[in-house]
Nucleic acid binder design. Structure first.
Lengths: 254, 254
DNA sequence: AACACTGCGATTGTACACAATGGATGGTGT
DNA sequence: ACACCATCCATTGTGTACAATCGCAGTGTT
């Protein structure tokens, strides 16, 4: 019936893949945001036709967007069976976090060397936005902005392959956090982000790396992955069964 | 006229992205191989219609394959202007190598921990194939197989995101080697690969990492990147101008 | 009553037709 | 003769129709 063709957040995010194709990027960004803000639960089926109707574009565009999302790991593309929001297993989550430690360490060291004053100012701005989101109670936006902070940091490292990889890792991390985070703990403490920026601004590489590693420790210590992951793990294992958007009464029949 | 629909190397490469779509993967793999074996020079324009005719499929398939290749960094997708084989600049090459050092170190450490006897045997087989290619004088296949060795090593590390990243890095590295390697030096000495396997089999992590780092040193010491990169750099800068496959008399008119 | 098989519906996979964009070429004016 | 501009052509971008595939439900049999 009603189409959502209003550009919504048409922020000139020039740091993206550089594509000038607006339609493409809008659809991509919207689905991406919806997943990361947990408005689309893991396991939700993403019908091409339905999405095309929502965004007022043809399946061709939707298909490209889904393909990109699949390549980043936030969407699972099953041949002949359509796309679903990815639901990372515990093992996958651990692999992502291992890779992130690796990348974040390198990014931090490089950012200390290369970050410009302007980029540092932008980072501070992002932390502000993040804090605002959490104080506003918008957990989904907070998770997303926290991820974008780490992505911005990667841009300061001035290494294109690393940026690309980091984008994929951050996306998956956000999905994992949305899925596994225990309760209502402030998941990615923004004051740690502030301290990190301070260290980078002072060009103190060792301190910055230490802070980042502690930050990583905090993040996955808040998840239920490591030992007592029975309950949420079970949820993850069977999440592909409840593919409808209604989280109502599906698990009962197990 | 004649279509190349024979599957050619239909090796059951199960380690890929898991897609069952054969057409898709065949086209992708063929273009990929052609680029890495330097049968398609950097800057060569990849016309959708021409490729579709060659492989006997529609432009839809070609487009998907090109999109995947673009995401891996071996193809450049210019909006409304078509796809060309990527021609990495010196700066891009250095970034790729920096990222590779990072990833290879981690992969080596993980492979020492997790590699199975079967995987080690496969690695040895790949080194044999690589040596055969070089002794046969097939430099292109050698470069490609050398890359696949590093990719196989990544699979032994048992970390999906790292494997995916490594695939992208190795692809771009092969392209860089094909573009910048000086003369006829044996670019990726396979005996270093053998030594590396030995260290992994003995589970000597420290030795393996040292060997890998020296291996990386050797690779980019053979390229003309670091200082005296004037001539080849110039070639890279202007390679997007000579987009035809005929390397005949294009640079003269400069 | 439970299992297996077959037909149907829905959704994705592919090809093709049309629209839009960019570059090239030829003409004209100064 | 050179530069500028308009038109044409080639190539890509997008939408849509048709074909193939898979899951599911209904039906029959053991």
């Amino acid at each position: 019936m009603n189409e959502q063709l209003q550009p919504l957040k048409k922020q000139p995010r020039a740091g993206k893949a550089g594509r000038s194709g607006t339609q493409d990027d809008i659809v991509y960004a919207h689905i991406f945001e919806a997943i990361l803000e947990q408005r689309l639960a893991p396991g939700t089926k993403l019908s091409e036709e339905a999405l095309g109707e929502i965004f007022g574009v043809s399946r061709t565009i939707i298909r490209r967007a889904l393909s990109r999302l699949a390549h980043e790991g936030v969407v699972l593309l099953r041949p002949n069976r359509g796309a679903v929001v990815a639901s990372p297993s515990v093992e996958e989550a651990r692999q992502v976090f291992m890779a992130r430690r690796l990348v974040e360490r390198a990014i931090t060291e490089l950012a200390v060397q290369h970050a410009t004053a302007e980029q540092i100012a932008e980072l501070r701005q992002m932390v502000n936005d993040e804090r605002d989101s959490f104080s506003r109670g918008d957990r989904g936006a907070g998770i997303r902005l926290s991820g974008e902070f780490h992505l911005k940091l990667a841009e300061a490292a001035k290494n294109t392959p690393l940026i690309s990889f980091q984008r994929s890792l951050v996306s998956q991390t956000s999905l994992i956090i949305a899925q596994y985070e225990s309760g209502n703990r402030s998941h990615c403490s923004y004051d740690e982000h502030t301290q990190l920026i301070d260290a980078i601004e002072k060009r103190d590489g060792e301190l910055a790396v230490n802070l980042m590693m502690h930050h990583m420790d905090h993040i996955d210590s808040k998840l239920n992955l490591d030992e007592e992951s029975a309950s949420d793990d079970l949820h993850a294992v069977f999440s592909h069964l409840l593919q409808t958007k209604k989280p109502g009464r599906s698990p009962a029949k197990l």
